[in-house]
Design a protein around this nucleic acid. Sequence first.
DNA 1: CGGCGGTACTG
DNA 2: CAGTACC
DNA 3: GCCG
Length: 392
Amino acid sequence: FFFFFFSFFYIWIENHETKRDASQEVSEHDSKIEDESCDLNYNIVSILQEMQRIYELMGDNWREFAYKRACGIVKMFPKKIETEADVALLLKTKGFSKKLGAKVLEIIQTGQLKKLNELKKLPQIEASNLFMGIWNQTSLCGNRGVGHQTVTQWYRLGYRTLDDVREKAALNERQKIGLKYYDDLRAKIPRCEVEEIEHFVKKEVMKIESECALVTCGSYRRGKAESGDVDLLITHPRAKKIVGLLEKIVDQLNKAGFLKDHFSLPSHKNKHAVDHHDTYMGICKLPDTADGRVYKYCRHLDIKVFPPAAFPFALLYFTGSDHFNRSMRYFAKKKGYTLSSYQLAPAIRLNNHKTHTGQPILCSSEEQVFEVLGLKYVKPCDRNNHEYFEFS
DNA sequence: CGGCGGTACTG
DNA sequence: CAGTACC
DNA sequence: GCCG
């Protein structure tokens, strides 16, 4: 009973803290500084971003990884980078070394990067550019079920425009929906609309299970002014209630006419597993309000339902960012643990293969996960970039 | 030189 | 199983 | 791409 009560109480606190923190974060300096710095070095960041995108298209995940990390480092840099001394300062940052330094130097001296211009001329990249418009953050490669393998295949098949793909390509469900809502999904979601989506879902969920707790994670929880999608994390203080809960929620939201299409529905596999959780991914649209407010866009909505014991880990995972999660998990690994979206456990590895996972370590809050790993707590608004966690 | 997160869905 | 996705 |  105490555990259930504690979980529920904790979640309640978390809900309210999240809201309060979030509103402070936008108005306070955190995100502002970042935006300003991003503007300060806008040219450098956008060129490095194009490099990242190209390597993503080429399937070179590790260069993509390194460039994304580098973008974060440049964004965080406190002043405009214009001299060799500035670049020297950049080079002191872990994750930013000679080759990237040379590229940044070239950018501040010439305003452009030869290597990028060459890569853009590659026929395949040029074609991808044509039918995906990757240079304006309108990439089809990324979150519409199309990766570098598909791009390469389409190129070999001679497709060169979006209409080629529409007419000739054999698309899977995910890709069809991606095309159907092509413009909608490109549009960013303002914080206030994220909140309204959360409110709508919460209202419907409460009709089914009034004890449910619901937290919006992702970039929203990290304090961003706009999000690409809405990530809702749901739990229930009683673990038994988790089974089949998401199906009921999806049914309810369907009845309300809120869901327009589905990427993936809650699976019926692994229902017996202790660590079981459910995922829904799809498209939603807020109804017009009585006072005449009209919502223009359909939005990408992800809902995850986790059992209460996994809640702190789920919250940590679902808040991200992707690079933050990877750095924390990498550190946990070096410390002899494995950290996932549902548990932290000792892990024994042989030649980098996980061979045994010990008893999970119970944590009742995000803070506790950091504590067990011997790390200083990092607030959601500071989880936007890659970190180098060190042994203390 | 090898390693760079852990997991879950579709087809 | 490969490919892509989630953060 | 970078790090150990």
